[in-house]
């Protein structure tokens, strides 16, 4: 499968400052690309450039074989869905209505039981079905975020009827989610990628990023400073430089997934523990015995939650 987006030498300049500088990135269909980097590194701006919301100062973006700039808004809306960082709703819509907006702006053939089925499936997938009749503004931040996730799923599902190449952009999608829903959302993102859609997500949790990414992109001061296989990128040591912290790189069984431990945190833990006997001193710190016996596989299924991740066929 080819790339959904090919962006070359993107610059986005405000005044004399390059918010995004010489960024070249491609989003291949069927892959989950995760972008990390410190605050203000230009991650969100890059995402907004690729989604067509902002026009690059220079550089070219080709989307599904066409120039992104020339693609009409309605077609773009069928090709890609965007979950933005913070969304405020102006009027008291219910959750169900908000999710439906994702379907209804795309075209006329969005009525009847078929549309109801898509909406219900997306609500279920975002684990927000039980709150579907509630007013959006009475929900907690995480529940609101899940509502928007259901909305972008709806948009993708509706666009899928006419477009074969699609992308999903997620800007800090797990920022206010609890642990279970963080995993649920990233599981869903992986499955969406597996169904042939290019997925790009911005995350702050390096361990989640490493666990889920097909490709890890590191941004710093507007530039893409590293990209590639997550383990290789981490091993390159650039992440510690970019964030300006000391990191300890470990591996978690069973798959030896790389695991990042911020050093300052480790030191604090060590300070609390009594000094170990000399012969134990060089044991690797983070892999404790308990960790190996616990369910440590990050892509955990969610037992007891009907229909959320088992036997899931994404598109109706």
């Amino acid at each position: 499968m080819g790339a959904f987006i090919e962006a070359r030498a993107l610059y986005y300049t405000v005044g004399h400052q390059n918010i995004v500088e010489n960024a070249t990135i491609s989003l291949p269909a069927g892959r989950l690309i995760i972008v990390v980097g410190p605050n203000g590194a230009g991650k969100s701006t890059l995402l907004r450039l690729l989604s067509g919301e902002l026009r690059p100062t220079s550089g070219s973006i080709v989307c599904a074989g066409e120039k992104l700039q020339g693609t009409p808004t309605w077609r773009l809306a069928r090709r890609r869905a965007v979950m933005a960082q913070a969304t405020q709703l102006a009027f008291p819509f219910t959750v169900n209505e908000v999710v439906r907006i994702g379907l209804e702006t795309l075209g006329a053939n969005t009525r009847g039981s078929e549309a109801d089925a898509i909406v219900a499936q997306c609500l279920r997938r975002a684990d927000i079905l039980q709150l579907a009749c509630r007013k959006y503004h009475t929900l907690s931040g995480g529940e609101q975020q899940r509502t928007h996730f259901a909305r972008v799923l709806c948009q993708l599902a509706a666009g899928r009827r006419s477009e074969s190449a699609q992308a999903l952009y997620l800007d800090e999608p797990v920022a206010s989610l609890d642990l279970r829903h963080q995993l649920m959302l990233l599981d869903a993102a992986r499955e969406i990628a597996k169904s042939g859609i290019a997925v790009m997500a911005i995350l702050h949790d390096l361990n989640l990023a490493v666990a889920y990414a097909d490709e890890l992109v590191v941004m710093h001061a507007g530039r893409i400073v590293a990209s590639g296989n997550p383990a290789d990128v981490l091993a390159g040591g650039i992440v510690a430089d970019v964030f300006g912290v000391d990191l300890r790189l470990c591996a978690t069984p069973p798959g030896n997934t790389p695991f990042v431990l911020p050093h300052g945190h480790a030191r604090r833990v060590a300070w609390r523990l009594p000094t170990p006997p000399v012969e134990n001193r060089f044991q690797p710190l983070p892999i404790q015995e308990g960790a190996t016996t616990q369910r440590s596989e990050p892509r955990a299924t969610l037992p007891g939650i009907e229909n959320t991740s088992m036997s899931f066929s994404f598109w109706p």
Binding site: R75, A77, Q88, T105, Q155
Partner: peptide, 20 residues
């Protein structure tokens, strides 16, 4: 009506949803 519904989510969101 459809466009204004999308606009209730914000201008950027409305654009993402295909509203001119």
């Amino acid at each position: 009506g459809r466009s204004l519904n999308a606009l209730a989510l914000g201008e950027a969101e409305a654009y993402h949803l295909g509203v001119r």
